[in-house]
Amino acid sequence: MYKNRKAIKALLVFYVVILGVMIVKAPAFFSFENAIDILLNTSTTAIAALGMLCVLLVGDIDVSVGAVLAACCTMTGILAKAQLPLAAVIMGAVAVGALLGLINGVVVTVLKLDAIVATLGLLSIYRGLLIIITKGSWINGLPENVLKIGQGRWLNIPIPVYITVVVALIMWFILNHTEWGRNFYAVGSNQDSARLSGINVRLTRIAAFVVCGVLVGAAAVIYTTRFGGIQSNTGKGWEMTLISSAVVGGASTIGGEGDVSGVFLGALLVSALGTLLVFFGVDALWEQAVQGLIIFISVASYAVDFKKLKLRLSGGGEKE
């Protein structure tokens, strides 16, 4: 009911076309190693994009995710350097994400501010505070025990890929099989009727922001431990990656629409685009434009109602 089947269908067609072209143009693309690398590179985006999905589902948006990522990465780095056990490092990062998500949710719902404006403001507050805390320095030289998360493999498959699959399964279960998940859809589809049917709208919206923060925190642990270093400007512009992943995957920015499988496919497309263009030999000067065009086409392919468009172009639409 809430699934955007059109988007998923369009994406799948898109994948078939791309893979078809690649098999002719760049057979080297098809190797186990490359497939694994693409999944590994998608992991942080996919996990956090599922968080963004929750916020979009309830009809809000969170553009502070880049700064939240930087904050969680910094927490991961600080705790790891203090030689804390792995579990404590992960808990710390996720707790920072949850706290910032809670602040976002409370500011948006209690102060009744527009989500995009409020989270934009919070984005720069978080970044500012972070620079004061870290003094803008990079964190380097993390201990081996935490690097296992980002760099380790089990059965020749990187740990972050397993984490992504587990997170996706949990999110799928929550969104489809719990009341909590169904409330997200209900609030996003129609706030008033959700309220009338006894759903605590404010709490549900806050919960969506918290889930987003938690997942960004989980992504941050992977992000930090893959390279063992954190730059002060980590996550700059990341909100665009997450929002486009979710939207390409069929999530609606006005709420109530989107699902886990779509967003996963969207994140895969958005983060594999760079790789595709290298293999395809697209001149790097064209990269940004081509990337934008592909995202545009993939959204347009399901969002535009072609029947109506045809009608309008042939002059028949005036009757509407």
Binding site: E33, N34, D37, F227, G274, V278, F279, G281, A284, E287
Partner: peptide, 25 residues
């Protein structure tokens, strides 16, 4: 053989380097 931009992003540079090694063996 190729020049690519990674911004100032360790992860992007990492992905690009591994893509480049695979597509230019």
């Amino acid at each position: 053989v190729d020049t690519r931009e990674a911004g100032e992003d360790t992860q992007k540079a990492n992905t690009l380097a591994s893509d480049l090694m695979k597509s230019y063996p």
